[in-house]
Amino acid sequence: MQNDPSTLSQRASQLRAHAVRMVHRSRASHLGSCLSMADILTCLYWNTLRVDPAHPDWDLRDRFFLSKGHGAALLYAALAERGFFSVDELQQYCMSGSRLTGHVTSGVPGVEFSSGSLGHALPVGCGVALAAKRENLQYRSVVLCSDGELDEGSNWEAILFAPQHQLDNLLLVVDYNRIQSFGSVRDVLDLDPLADKFRAFRWAVREVDGHNMQQLVDTFSVLPFERGRPSVVIANTIKGKGVSFMEDALAWHYKTPTAEQVSLALRELGVDA
C-alpha cells in the first residue's frame, strides 16, 4: 500500500501519459474523462483497494467497478502498471483483435465487469455488496461513476436501495467534472445540490478535491464513513486534468490528440515521450 501523496501523484501522471499515448495511437476518444479520474483511480489501486495482481480472482478481494466504461484506457493503464497484465499490451488498446476494447471489457485481468452503457455498475456493485453483507464477508464493493450518468434512473434506483440494505461495504465515487457528453452538467441536467441529494437518500457523504492526493488517501482510509450506511465520495474534478489545453473542454471527450499535442501533453505531465 502506497501512502506518500507525491509518489501517488507521479503515478497518476504516468497513467495519464499512458492514456494520451493509447488514445493517440488508436485514434480513439474520451481522453478528458480518463484524465479527470486519474488521481482517484491511482489512489484506489495503489492505496485503497485490497487486490492481488497475482491472484485476480482472490475470493476476498475488494471489487472495483468502473461505471463510466468510456474511461477504459486509464483503467487498463492502471491495471497494467499495477501488475495485472503486461504494460506492453497497452499498445494494443483498440487495435484490431485486441481484448483492450474502447469500453471496459471483462476478461482483461483485473476487470471485474464490462461497462460502456451508463448507469449499470452501481446496481451490480450493490448486488456484490449485499452478498458480502449477508454472508459476513469482509470485501468491499467500490463503484466509480461519472456525473453525467447520474441522469440515468437506474442509478437512483440503486441509490435508494443501498441504504435500505445498510450496505456500508459499498463505496460510490462520483467523478464530478461538471461536463457531460454534450454540454455542462448545469446546462443539461443540473445535479446540484448533489451532496444534499445523497444525504436525503441516507448516504454518508464526503466531498473532496479529486486531484488532491492527500485528501483522497485520507478520505478512502476511513471507510465506511458511517456504520450501516453506504459511502459516497463526491470528487470535484477537472475534465482533462493535467494537460492544460484539454482541461475543462468538452471537445476532449471526442478528440484524438495529434503527435504534436501528445508531445506537449507528455511534457506537461512531466513524462518522457
Binding site: L122, P123, V124, C126, G127, A131, S154, E157
Partner: peptide, 26 residues
C-alpha cells in the same frame, strides 16, 4: 429470508443487483 429480496418497483436495479449477486457466486 437471507436469500430472498424484494428490490422494490425497480426492475433495472433488480436485474443489476441479481448480476452482482451472481458475480458473487449465487
Amino acid at each position: 429470508p437471507a436469500r430472498y429480496l424484494n428490490v422494490g418497483v425497480a426492475e433495472q436495479n433488480m436485474t443489476g443487483v441479481a448480476a452482482g449477486l451472481a458475480l458473487a457466486g449465487k
